[in-house]
Design a protein around this nucleic acid. Structure first.
Lengths: 124, 124, 124, 124
DNA sequence: GTGGTCTAGACCACC
DNA sequence: GTGGTCTAGACCACG
């Protein structure tokens, strides 16, 4: 399964599931039209409360990532792959913006910031 | 005053105060040994409950940023300025690391990441 | 239950709770990973305000003795047992040091101090 | 002067004064019948609030360590030296009792406690 | 059910 | 005046 969860993480469990499903959809790990695991199955697998999985799936439906296929379950919605990729890009950009602007406001010089960035990039 | 608070922000009010006091200490807006505004005064100024301010101040004491001067109030602890600056640096580095590694894991090419960074840096 | 509180004691109630939880952890009365009584339950049991219990638990989290398990409660953190035992040892040593050095400074002869100690030890 | 005060100490300032006066009396640093510094003089010397000194002196009068000498000030009361020495002895004994009993209750073996004590005694 | 946060108001010791 | 502690009761997100 492409989802794993860490109850000790500060992010809510249902949110971890949401993100990972979106991530999987963005990467094509699950294709458009494919069924995701049922609420009960995923809950059993992750050893968490089914309500938590249901909540994650509900949010994914509200964001048009998943859609119900009557009698079968939930499937990845048409266009969800593209939307997930876009969202991911925007998210990263927004976070990058926030970090860099905070770094600047906290008094670091541009040169110092560049140094930090290069150090991090070379690590990856 | 060097503290302002946004109750609509997702960060807890007491945490906003904690961060801003640390920020002020790191910048020298309040020097070592100086008194910070009293609990009641800051509460009145921010139009929040004194307990909330007290909680923020309590945490700052636990982190050795403030110390009580009995009967007078709370003062910036010795060495707090240096420690706050260091902490700030580490925090920024950690966040930068997280964002960049997430960017990399989400499939962006190094060249694309650099483009985003340059765009953000030039904005600042 | 392994916690009891004396409101007449000069030590703050929340601090009594903190110490007794640490004591229980050090002794293994509650094992690593086990849940401690919920805030509301302990408050009811001790007939005190839930906020007071919450404050004690907050401090125990800051000292890495407890950690939240979302939706379930607070559990003893990994390694907390060892840390609590160490802390207890250091505390006793520090207090012993203080008493003995005060005794010496107040003019008592070594022989007299030893007499006092033997008297106390035989009592225990 | 035989009194010095640390506002950062956790003990209340007035209590620090009380203890040090008693200590001085017990040692004979100030003899029976001798005058102690006036409230104003001591306050100026220690750079603290005169009310604080007054409170300490008040308590010392209540405990019959000092007595007023009309027109002159406060003097060490007759027999105060003996009483201070006795009190000091009892205090040390009580504290020793507390530390040793806590050490025992926290699970340390008698042999271990003795080791700690010897280590401390040899240091002094 | 759980903890986390916030408000409101009280009493205390200390300076 | 100051901070420290405690009570009472509310609302929230999470599982």
């Amino acid at each position: 399964m492409f989802v794993h969860v860490d109850p000790a993480h500060d992010l809510a469990i249902y949110d971890q599931i949401v993100r990972q499903i979106k991530f999987a959809v963005a990467h094509g790990a699950v294709g458009v039209g494919e069924l995701v695991p049922s609420v009960r199955e995923l809950a059993r697998e992750l050893a968490i409360n089914p309500n938590t999985v249901a909540r994650a799936y509900l949010q994914l439906q509200n964001e048009n990532v998943l859609e119900t296929v009557r009698g079968l379950g939930l499937a990845v919605a048409a266009g969800a792959d593209k939307r997930c990729r876009q969202e991911r890009g925007k998210l990263i950009q927004a976070r990058l913006h926030q970090v860099l602007s905070e770094a600047r406001h906290s008094g670091l010089e541009l040169a110092e910031i560049r140094k930090l960035i290069e150090a991090e990039l070379s690590e990856i």
